[in-house]
């Protein structure tokens, strides 16, 4: 994501006063917007109680400091995200390799899997796996949610992997083949190391999606951040305060990850130019 205008203006830097004016204008508009929303809520007679929120973030007594419910939920969100991430990489890579084999059965399986996943809503997939597949296979609720999530993200990850592998120059394949390398050695030593470089940035943004999509597992009673938010909301009716806090926590996490993406992109672009 760039913040520059397009086409780039020829001037090297903007006149600082104009920047200042624009930023002030922006801040004014934002303040106006927030003020408008605040007044609107006042009209509804909503009673803001922000002071009740911190106890859900952290609790501390004299010499003890512990995480509040929301932070515990964030922990579960991280846990789900990490496990799903590993599974996603595995499923994604397998599917990508299956799609590139000569075997029609392998390609067929990969194709059917991808069409199924990409053409139905994640929410329904979670419900389906949790309520229909899991009881048939005796899966626990947590794993049902994690598997639903990884299957979903895996379909998108496989596209990233495939694009990365396909982007490798044809000459590389031919050179590897002419050296008499077996397919495994070829992938392991020639293709994947190069592909990884191109795959890593889009894969990290897929991780951002994973964090966001993990909110949906709250619908099957997994105690993640969103579910904790919903439960506190149902108990205390601090609707607005809770949802703003939850959104802010997600924003901090995803923005940090997006920041990592950008650093990665810059590093890899830089190193590629130095070749």
């Amino acid at each position: 994501m760039s913040i520059n205008s397009y086409p780039p203006s020829g001037k090297p830097a903007r006149f600082p006063v104009a920047t200042l004016v624009d930023t002030t204008k922006y801040l004014l508009v934002m303040t106006g917007l927030v003020w408008f929303l605040a007044v609107g809520t006042e009209r509804l007679g909503y009673n803001w109680q922000w002071y009740r929120i911190p106890q859900y973030l952290w609790q501390h007594t004299e010499h003890d400091f512990s995480c509040g419910l929301l932070m515990q939920g964030l922990g579960v969100t991280f846990q789900i995200t990490c496990i799903s991430m590993v599974l996603m990489l595995f499923i994604g890579l397998t599917t990508a390799l299956l799609r590139m084999t000569d075997s029609w059965a392998a390609r067929g399986v990969a194709r059917v899997y991808m069409e199924l996943i990409r053409n139905s809503p994640l929410l329904i997939q979670i419900f389906f796996i949790y309520f229909v597949v899991a009881p048939i296979l005796d899966m626990s609720g947590f794993w049902a949610a994690v598997i639903a999530l990884s299957l979903f993200e895996g379909a998108y990850a496989s596209e990233i992997f495939r694009a990365g592998i396909v982007s490798i120059d044809k000459g590389q394949w031919e050179a590897a083949k002419s050296l008499g390398m077996a397919p495994y050695a070829m992938y392991r030593h020639i293709i994947l190391p190069q592909a990884i470089r191109r795959i890593l940035p889009p894969l990290t943004s897929q991780a951002v999606s994973l964090v966001k999509d993990s909110a949906l597992v709250s619908t099957v009673a997994i105690m993640d951040l969103t579910q904790q938010g919903r439960m506190i909301d149902a108990e205390t009716f601090l609707t607005f305060e809770i949802w703003f806090t939850v959104a802010a926590i997600y924003l901090v996490v995803t923005l940090t990850l997006s920041g990592v993406v950008r650093i990665l992109e810059r590093r890899f672009n830089g190193s590629q130019q130095s070749f």
Binding site: V208, V211, K212, D213, S214, A215, L216, S218, T226, G229, T239, W243, F244, V246, A247, Y250, L251, T254, L255, S258
Partner: peptide
């Protein structure tokens, strides 16, 4: 950068 579920509630 915010989950759709949370956005929809807000």
């Amino acid at each position: 950068n915010t989950p759709p579920l949370v956005l929809i509630f807000i």
